[in-house]
Each structure stands twice: as structure tokens, then as C-alpha cells.
Design a protein around this nucleic acid. Structure first.
Lengths: 341, 341
DNA sequence: CCAGAGTGCTCATACGTATGAACGTGCAGC
DNA sequence: GCTGCACGTTCATACGTATGAGCACTCTGG
């Protein structure tokens, strides 16, 4: 009942274990067809299957790629957060013949997931790992980097003293282009709705926004820009009476709040105010916001490719990669109202 | 840059490799606290992390569980087919400290996935595997069984000469109870809408239906029951004029067709005909069918448990397990119309 | 008829870990 | 002062594979 080994096959075929190994793993330059046949027949008869652990130990290669998220995957997959990434990851892994390990064993009682648990790094079971998730633990990232472990991170992550290779949705450029296109439609006075989230992805949006505002000589009066995430009454009043004709919101949620707040004052989008969102809007059938599209599936695929590239070229400097985000038109941007011209 | 091994730690701590192994893996009965301290310090200093491959080779245990589907997972996950199963699988694996391997490398050009590819069985990378999917390949299942590989299948699968351990939604009982509850509301004449799918899960539904019909002495006139899956004009006519007051449909799709066919004749559900479906209806906001609920998440969890149980008790006979499905009331069942009494 | 090259295969070893057996030391008991 | 034992540690080995080096043999060309 025990799984047959190469030596069992060898005995049956009347050759040595190394001959079997050569045939099984394709190193057959000096093995005549007839012997190969004999060995293959024996392999088949015994139902021999290579032992992954042994191969691994010997080769340092697994054809196994890890996926680590700092929270459970599937619950979130449903709200589309991880979903498209996984789709791309799975698709690409399948194409190039790798299996995927979902690191689930690393869960702690508080629902977070750790890479290092009592000193063990489960990740090194895989040849390399794609990390993702909003709740990235920077300390662990730093340690992983210092250990020389092979990984890429989806989304930009800045960690002092470590050069994390990332696949980065280009929010800087997307935000810049979004503002630019609003300016082209005549908007000069902008406000920015700040989510309060302190994370690279949001810093990038803010940078892109600021870039465009300055480059084009536009005017900005943003409560969020100065760091207050809430839509206060005062702000809404200011917005209604002030010169602003366009608002750039970081999230759909903020935009929705804004719409409600405006409606309460008898103002509507986009007639009175144009609103664009720096986030993909999904397919939900509500308001069709002018927004951007993060090519998540593509990013998943690229992450796998980056990982494999690094595996094949261990000496090369790891490098991050920007991925462009498209802007999509919705129904929430128009030319500025005449009343404010 | 190379990862430190136990022997490196040992040298630094001034002990032998085996002492390190003992401390690292918790076999410390005869190692005094002071030595442990020294070793732990060395582990920390070098950033030692156990090599998973070597451990696996030595232990024959991986703490890796496989998930194999005969089609790509994620595309289908979205329509909820795999989703809840995966949710349960991930959840339970996390709870008991296992990682998951998604077998993606086994894809073939035709989109199907194979377990055995040029003789190699990738699955044995994991300690055991959960198999699922509509498109189960029975030959591979049989071979896997004969190879003595450890697995469980989600959903009943019958393969000649092999006793596949399955986690089975109890469609037999659910169908029986469904008919029973219809009978309790006064229905005596039934028809059954047959999907034409030849698979155990549907055979079970049919068996349960038939059981109840016979046990309760009810009347059945089912085109589907005799094997024709289509809703023909004749059948609809027969249904409208015949004595039937209740229809049991295998799928939501069939039920929808039926509703449209009836509407075209001016008949409505449930006023003229009660309809219940032997399938979960999901959350879509359309018609709220009387139907059953397959506890998918629970089944995913049970599959993991069954797998682990078999790992821990290799000698015990593998055994399949039935999981009860609840019936949920919708808006498509009523008492029989007076006109047909 | 010998040097040299090529062919078909095997030997031996390393990968990193876990663990039963064994070894040496110190100490208690008689 | 010898026996026996507990303690702390190391030895030696096995897990299954891949591969460079090496061996025996055959053939070719000069």
C-alpha cells in the first residue's frame, strides 16, 4: 500500500534508480529508447508517481506558487475585492503549469493572518508568493524581505529599509488624467473628498490629484485635502455656495454620501456639481459614477509573471511595475453649471 | 544569502544538529532550559526557519490539503457554484492549521483538468484532497482510489469497483420531505420536471420523489419522470387540463420555463399550480420559489474534517456522509385550487 | 593495434530534518 | 566501591530524488 519509489521501479525494470530518475525527469540523452520503454512500462505497472517533497528538497523548486492574504480570502472574494486578482492569478498559474497554495494555516485567533508563526515561515513551502490585501503587515513584509524570500506584493507598499517589489495600479496617473479631463470640460474649481485611509494607494491618488491641480493652475478647496474625511454640514454649505463645480471622491461610499447631502439641499449631480470617483464602481446597478477601472485580473496575471521572472533571474534587481487604470465615463460629470461661470 | 540550516544554528549554539531539531520541533523532555535558551537565541540570531520540504520528506506529512476541481474554480465561484464550498473549506482549514493547494497546473488545452498527466499525479503533493465539481472524471476517480490516495468527494459519485468517500447533500430525503409537505397541504396529483441530467445528485432527487409518491399513495404523471426533459406543448396542455395540482422541478431554470408556459395559457403559480424546486434558489431577487437549501459551506467544512479524520485513522474504512438539506418556503406553493378538487 | 571518442549505464552523494539508539557522566543506594 | 539509573547530548540513519563523476564497453580513424 505504500507508494512505490524510483528504486522499486528500477528493480522491476532491471536498471538502477538513477536511470529511472533520468527517464522520469526527462534527462534521456544517453538512454536508448528501448530502455526507456522498459522503465516507462515499470512506472506504469507500479503506478509510480514522483514524491514532491523529495524533489523539492533536492531541487529547491516546487512549481508551487503561494498566495497569501492578510485576511481570509473567500469571504472578501465575494465583494469583489480579491476576486478578480485571484481570477488572474489562477488563470496565469494554470497557463504556465504552476499550482497554487493558499496560505490559510497562518490564521490567528483575531482573524488576522501572520506569515511568521512561532518562528516558522510557512510561505517557504512555495517557490514564491503573491501577497495581497488591505491589511498588509509591514513588519512581516520587512522580515520577509530581509530573509531573501521571493515574493511580490499586489498594490504599492512602502517599507523602510526594504525594496518591496510590487504590482501597482497607477493611481497617480489615473487621478491626474481624471482631473485633466474634468478641466478639459471647463471645470476650474475643484474639491477633493478624502477617505481618511492612510495607505499608499490613497496617497497615490492624492498625489495625482495635486499634480494635475498644480500643473493646470486649477483651484482646489478641499476639506479632505487637508485631512478631514467627513462631509460636514459646513462643507456641504460651502460647496453649494462656493465656486467649486467638480468633486473628486476617493471612494464610491463618499460619493454616495455627497449625493445624499446635496439632494437634501435640492442640488443634483451632475447638473449642479460634477462628481468623479477614484475607485472602480463594480457592476452594481445603482448610480453610474464616472470612475476608474483597476484591471485587477490583469494585475493578478502580472503578479504571477513577475514572480516567475524573478525566479528565473534571481540576480536581477527586483523591480516594481505600474499598471495603467482606465477611466470610464458615467453619468455624474457634465460641464459646469452656468450659474457658477 | 542562503537560508540557515539546523546545523548552522547548532554550530553557533555549540550543540549538535539533533539538539536543535529537538528544540525547534518541541521534543524537549530531556533538554534543560538553559540549553534551550541558547539554541533559541541562535535560531533568532540566524533567522532560522525550518525547511518545509525536508520536514515533509521526513514526516510524510505536509499540513497541506488539496482542492481539485475538474474545471477552473474562480470563474464558477462567482455564480456561487463553488463559492460556498470553498468558503467552508478555507474556513475549516484555517481553523485546524492547514494550508490549501489549489490544483491549477493540471489544466489541459480543452479547459478540463486532469489529475493524472503523463503519469504524474500532482495531487500527492498534498496530504489529502477534496474533489468537487460537476464534471468529475470517473476514470480518474477510480484510478485515484486504486492508488490508495486519500481524498473525499463533495457530492455523491458512484464508480464501479471503488468505494468513493463522499460528502453528500441528502437529496433523497429532501425530495421526499418536499413531496410529503405538499401532500400535507392537500396535493394528491403530482408531476415531476426532469432536467435530463444523468448524475447521482439528480438520481437521488428522483429516488426521493418516487419514494414519497409511493409511500403516500399519491398519483404521478410526469413526462420528466419517464425521461423527457423538455416542456412540450402537449405536456403543458395536459398539465392545464389534467388533475395535477403540484409540480416538483429539478432546477430553477425548469421552473421558470414552466411559469412562462403557464402564463401563456393564463395560468399562474401558485393559484392554479403549486411548484417547488429541488435546488437552492440563491439570493436573486426574482421569484421566491419553494425550494431546498444545500448547506454548502457546512459541506465544505465537513469535507475537510472527513479528510483529516481519514488521515489520522488510515486503517478505518472510509465512509460517506449524508448532510441534511433544509426546505425553505417561498411563494410558489399553495393549497390545491378548488377547481381541481 | 592503439588512442580517443562516444555510448549506456551505475555509483555515490547531497538536499535538511526527525528520531531511536547509544554514549558518557554524575549521583544515589546498598 | 560497585551497580543501576537518570540525565544531557550526540550518533547514525532514513526519507526519495537528481546529478556529476566514473566505469566498462564499442566503434572509428590512423
Amino acid at each position: 500500500m505504500k507508494a512505490p519509489r524510483q528504486s522499486d521501479v528500477a528493480r522491476l525494470a532491471g536498471v538502477s534508480q538513477s536511470a529511472v530518475s533520468r527517464v522520469v525527469s526527462g534527462d534521456i540523452d544517453r538512454i536508448p529508447a528501448e530502455t526507456q520503454e522498459r522503465i516507462r512500462a515499470a512506472v506504469k505497472e507500479l503506478g509510480y508517481v514522483p514524491n514532491a517533497a523529495a524533489r523539492n528538497l533536492r531541487n529547491k523548486r516546487n512549481r508551487l506558487l503561494g498566495v497569501h492574504t492578510f485576511e481570509a480570502v473567500f469571504p472578501h472574494a465575494r465583494d469583489d475585492f480579491y476576486f478578480e486578482f485571484l481570477l488572474g492569478i489562477e488563470e496565469r498559474a494554470e497557463e504556465i503549469g504552476y499550482d497554487l497554495v493558499l496560505f490559510t494555516s497562518t490564521g490567528t485567533s483575531d482573524g488576522r493572518r501572520r506569515i511568521y508563526r512561532d518562528g516558522t515561515n510557512r510561505l517557504n513551502l512555495a517557490d514564491g508568493t503573491v501577497l495581497l490585501g488591505a491589511a498588509t503587515d509591514r513588519e512581516e513584509l520587512a522580515r520577509l524581505w530581509h530573509d531573501g524570500y521571493l515574493f511580490v506584493h499586489i498594490g504599492r507598499r512602502e517599507v523602510a529599509g526594504a525594496e518591496i517589489p510590487c504590482i501597482i495600479p497607477d493611481y497617480v496617473s489615473a487621478a491626474d488624467r481624471l482631473v485633466t479631463s474634468l478641466a478639459e470640460r471647463g471645470h476650474r474649481h475643484f474639491a477633493y473628498l478624502h477617505s481618511g485611509i492612510e495607505q499608499e494607494a490613497y496617497a497615490d491618488r492624492r498625489a495625482g490629484y495635486r499634480n494635475a491641480i498644480e500643473r493646470l493652475g486649477l483651484h482646489d478647496r478641499s476639506p479632505g485635502f487637508r485631512g478631514e474625511p467627513e462631509l460636514t454640514e459646513e462643507w456641504l454649505v460651502g460647496m453649494a455656495s462656493g465656486p467649486e463645480t467638480a468633486v473628486v471622491a476617493e471612494t464610491i461610499g463618499l460619493a454616495e454620501q455627497l449625493r445624499i447631502g446635496l439632494a437634501a439641499r435640492g442640488l443634483s449631480i451632475p447638473a449642479d456639481l460634477s462628481v468623479a470617483v477614484l475607485e472602480g464602481s463594480g457592476d452594481e446597478s445603482g448610480q453610474r459614477w464616472d470612475c476608474l477601472v483597476v484591471p485587477r485580473k490583469e494585475i493578478g496575471r502580472l503578479a504571477i509573471d513577475a514572480l516567475v521572472a524573478r525566479m528565473e533571474n534571481p540576480d536581477e534587481e527586483p523591480v516594481s511595475r505600474l499598471v495603467a487604470c482606465e477611466l470610464v465615463a458615467g453619468e455624474t460629470v457634465a460641464v459646469p453649471p452656468q450659474s457658477k461661470e
